[in-house]
Amino acid sequence: MKHRSFFWFFLPTATAMLLFIAFPIVSVLIQSVYAPHEQVIIEVENCGPFGCTATTTVDQEATRALREAQPMGRFVGLDIYFNRAHLAVSEIGALWTAAPDLGTFFSRLLGLPFYGALSFTLTYTFLVTPFSLMLGFVIALSVNALPRILRGPTIFFSLLPMIVTPLVGGLILFWMIDSRGVLGAFFQYLSGDPDLSVKASTPMMWVMLIVYGIWSSAPFAFVVYYAGLQTVPQDTLESAMIDGATRWQRIRYVMLPHLLPLTTFMALIKIMDNFRVFEPIISFQASAHAQSLSYFIYSDLGGETRLLSSAAATSVLTIIGIVILLSPVLVRTWRSFGKA
């Protein structure tokens, strides 16, 4: 295709992505180095019959004027990145000197909001991704063993956890594990503790969020693995049968190597998706026990006081995180393309 016609065909999508993806990234970068203006304070002397008192009040007029003149706020450099809500450099310094040992240091470190969110996000990403792939693979193997007529309905039901709105899927599970819900009652029965509440315990909440993550991610892995299993070369599989491979050896030496590229692909997609984990924390009302980076941004943005600069700084840090996670893939693409 000639450059000219390519340009016209690509223009609409390029405009959309430029305006609403590339530009916001720039906007986030800029916002993160500006803080909102402080209010202009003036000292007013009120002189009454009992003498003069000096009071400070907000000069609404001047504040508005200042805000209109410089809508971005005041330039603060990297201050927001280093404050307590983000990288918390000075707090970490203080913790480091105060903490008696590494364990205490780390547990206090995770008490800082940004590091807490980061640790949950990473834990979630790196537990949910492998476990959902494994679960999906076992489901795919089982479905592959089913008679053909049963496969359609099985696939239908298996797709549901993935297709359902994340917020809704989270809510459905959350209501079930409520201490008055059916699963909550079941857990109480299992543990023999009638007051057991998943909502009240941080480790239980983490476990539930991760279980939800695996539940909702496994169908994707299942469907892709199932399709992959249909493309395993029949000749090679039969060769292995005749060569004497057992069922397990056939999986180990023929199927798994064949599915390896798919696994890499899905791991990549799932890492991207899991890193943005967000809705289940809202559904599970888990913010007291677990925050993710996305939720951290969301809670800064929402509410009465919209902390745009703080959210922007977290966003930039999140984007850096994504780039670090994707860097192996990007570097490999770069190299293989350089060679070709």
């Binding site: 609403f20 993806i21 916001p24």
Partner: peptide, 23 residues
């Protein structure tokens, strides 16, 4: 362009949202 699209695909939407609000 496809690689750039892949990187964009990886952006959590909420990070973009924080870029939209002010403008």
């Amino acid at each position: 362009l496809l690689i750039i699209a892949l990187v964009f695909r990886a952006m959590p939407p909420i990070t973009l949202v924080s870029g939209y609000l002010l403008p």
